[in-house]
């Protein structure tokens, strides 16, 4: 049986809100140590992996490992109308493993609303161990998420693709659209400690800007973001979420190649 309790303004729900423009259904695995969510967008281009340890929830109990397909879009929609100080309880039982129950309790505890959401069947993807994947990359850029968001905002003025390339002591973002082009050079400063650009080998990736903007939305929940690039491989965007937590989110984005 799984039971977890959280307040509406919680990290988990804020992250779910932020990823909904990419995915509406997700594979959620729960164990005694925490919750892992994995989801692929409908086009099979972007993958999201979210890890939230048990202690991040107001209450968390899972006595048996569970894996379920959840329509997170429907779940978030059900929770949206709850009062901001309301308490949300999510339950899944072994006896009836066809749905989950989402209960919303008002702050005064005088009103309880329960939703029963049917579980969905999902294709599961075998993604290699992500930490190992990060070590193999040609270039990594650790940067404040505000910088990443600002660059994505600049890029969103140009409708099209973005080329991310390594340059001497830095990285370059280049977007070419119908109305013109945009070029951002992001260099390793001499003194800043929150920027770390490491290049093992030159690399250039072309990516769909629409996905980059979705990634920027989640990075708003984190102070730092890490981009890892390797020739001909998916871009990896990694964020630790919140302060003093071990929660993290990882995105993979398939590149565009010469047609």
């Amino acid at each position: 049986m799984l039971e977890l309790k959280l307040v509406k303004e919680s990290l988990f729900l804020n992250v779910l809100e932020a990823i909904l423009d990419l995915v509406a259904v997700a594979s959620v695995s729960c164990s005694s140590t925490g919750l892992k969510l994995q989801a692929m967008d409908a086009k099979g281009v972007a993958f999201i992996s979210l890890l939230i340890p048990a202690k991040e929830f107001q209450f968390y109990h899972c006595d048996k490992d569970l894996s379920m397909g959840i329509a997170i879009g429907d779940m978030v929609e059900a929770i949206r109308s709850a009062d901001k100080d309301g308490t949300i309880t999510i339950k899944a039982s072994d006896e009836n493993f066809r749905n989950i129950t989402v209960s919303i309790e008002s702050p005064e505890c005088n009103e309880t609303t329960s939703f029963s959401l049917l579980l969905v069947t999902l294709k599961r993807f075998c993604i290699p161990e992500l930490q190992g994947l990060l070590k193999k990359y040609d270039a990594c850029v650790q940067m404040p998420s505000v910088d990443f968001m600002r660059i994505c905002k600049y890029l969103s003025n140009v409708d099209g693709d973005v080329d991310i390339s390594t340059i001497d002591k830095g990285i370059r973002f280049f977007a070419l659209g119908k109305c013109g082009c945009l070029n951002v050079k992001y260099m390793q400063p001499e003194k800043a400690t929150d920027i770390d650009i490491s290049v093992q080998a030159p690399v250039s990736l072309t990516l769909d800007l629409k996905y980059m903007n979705s990634f920027a939305k989640v990075s708003a929940l984190s102070n730092q973001v890490k981009l890892c690039l390797s020739k001909g491989q998916p871009l990896v965007v990694q964020c630790k979420i919140g302060q003093k937590t071990k929660s993290r989110i990882i995105y993979l984005l398939a590149p565009k190649i010469k047609g």
């Binding site: 099979g44 281009v45 972007a46 294709k123 398939a254 565009k256 047609g259």
Partner: peptide, 14 residues
């Protein structure tokens, strides 16, 4: 022109 790849080209499906 550029062609969008899919993640399934990099990772296997279960």
């Amino acid at each position: 022109s550029r062609k969008q790849t899919k993640l399934s080209a990099f990772f296997s499906e279960k």
